[in-house]
Design a protein around this nucleic acid. Structure first.
Lengths: 145, 145
DNA sequence: CTCAGTGCAAAGGATTTGCATGCCG
DNA sequence: CGGCATGCAAATCCTTTGCACTGAG
């Protein structure tokens, strides 16, 4: 999905929830698109100096509620945010256990499909209703080795 | 691994790091064994009233450092703790998106093996060195449906 | 006896909220 | 114009830390 499509989709999502697509929220979406992976509040504030911390928190919460953004917590104390999967495509995360940075990666379709089948099998008898799966690789990024 | 084996292993891990296996730490290990999955600090304190909050935090940190315990963060604001995988066996988590509760589940060996192969393939060109994988299913637990 | 472990209370730090102001629709 | 979004600063809440005390070896 290109930048324009994302913008249209976010507009629609916000509108559907009776929310405005203000300048601050648009800046946030642009900043999120610029990263190689999920970004922390600090990284977002550094990306665009016109953003104010409390508004960033508030707007990310709203963008998450309308389904435009996903909040991620890894292991360190900073939450990270990225555009929702239906805007970016299904993917997973490479989490560096040293510096905490997170990058995206994908699995091929066949692997994803067989994974999903295995999940259904495994969860069948637990009474658990699967909505999504989350898969991360933890290790050392190129910078930290 | 049964209760006795876990106890011996934790003793060894602590000893190796010049740490004592005190009553408080033993209570913590017992409490962790009693759960169906990772437990929050609050749940641990409720399990055993003789535990003090600050000591629980401190001891969990130490148990994590020596490799006896793993700290998990899901989506809500409470960290969760469980015994390390070499004490409990490799497993994954069912995370309830409604109440936040976490339960354990496992995949069969063939699926795990093919997963690992897919990871190596996917990470090969990223310069990322895989240390572990983390896989969670997010959905609705039996209580929350 | 000594020193690590403990518990209480106070401090930290990411996140949240109250309130006056300004801007979008 | 009216109300929602904004930004500042103060408040929250999980977690960490200082300090005096206790207990294990």
């Amino acid at each position: 999905m290109n930048e324009q499509d994302v913008d249209n989709e976010v507009t629609a999502l916000l509108h559907r929830a009776d929310q405005r697509y203000t300048r601050g929220r648009r800046r946030l979406v642009v900043a999120l698109q610029s990263g190689e992976g999920p970004l922390t509040i600090t990284q977002l504030l550094a990306t665009d100096a016109s953003l104010s911390q409390s508004s960033v928190y508030r707007n990310l919460t709203i963008l998450e509620e309308v389904g435009a953004v996903t909040r991620i917590v890894t292991h360190d104390d900073f939450a990270r945010y990225e555009l929702a999967e239906h805007l970016t495509g299904h993917h997973h995360h490479l989490i560096c256990s040293s510096c905490g940075d997170v990058a995206d990666f994908s699995l091929d379709g066949r692997t994803e499909a067989s994974l999903d089948r295995a999940f259904q099998r495994a969860a069948k008898h637990t009474g658990f209703e699967i909505q999504a799966h989350r898969l991360d690789l933890v290790g050392a990024c190129a910078n930290c080795q």
